[in-house]
């Protein structure tokens, strides 16, 4: 899992920084050199989208997704277990859906042979991130389930206010 985390972190950081760099490069070219880079917008947006899709699972890994604690904080350990199990089931189903529907979109776009309008990249390549994100999410939910059923989960830890920027 540590290796996976590292890979996720590297990819997301590289996509974000490369996207930022490309956009700033196009600003520089447009404003200083006076030459427009019509491909830049499509590419940097795509890089950010990829980073964000991978981010769905890193956010799950680091408990960054917002949850509502009102009920959870006021119930006993038995009910807390129920909460955890429901979250695992819903999350796993959601990830599975992501993989299935994402794959379907990739195959459809591949069969249709669609390309992006500006750069002309086959669109199924940009869509690949959908099933990939689904697989990553699924791995995180399976990891959570494993921890839960082997009692490696600290239920009280959930009470900690998780804050995001």
């Amino acid at each position: 899992m540590k290796v996976l985390s590292k890979i996720e972190n590297i990819f997301t950081a590289v996509f974000l920084l490369a996207g930022t760099g490309i956009s700033l490069y196009s600003v520089f070219m447009r404003y200083v050199v006076g030459s427009s880079q019509s491909w830049a917008t499509e590419i940097f947006t795509m890089l950010f989208v990829w980073a964000i899709f991978i981010g769905f699972s890193t956010a799950l890994r680091d408990d960054s997704h917002i949850v509502i604690d009102v009920v959870y904080d006021r119930v006993g350990p038995g009910m807390k277990k129920v909460c955890e199990i429901v979250t695992l089931i819903v999350g796993t189903a959601f990830s599975a859906f992501f993989i299935w529907a994402g794959m379907d979109m990739v195959l459809t776009a591949y069969a249709q042979g669609i390309r992006t309008i500006d750069v002309g990249v086959p669109i199924w390549i940009t869509y690949l991130i959908m099933p990939i994100a689904g697989v990553l999410l699924l791995i995180r939910f399976i990891e959570k389930a494993y921890r839960f059923f082997t009692n490696k989960v600290d239920l009280e830890k959930g009470d900690e206010a998780e804050w995001q920027q």
Binding site: R30, S36, S38, E42, D118
Partner: peptide, 22 residues
Amino acid sequence: FRTQGGQVLEELYTTLGAGSES
């Protein structure tokens, strides 16, 4: 110039010595 994108329009402005962005 701003265009709604697409390679023909990009080429059109390039031919005129101008740049295009979407």
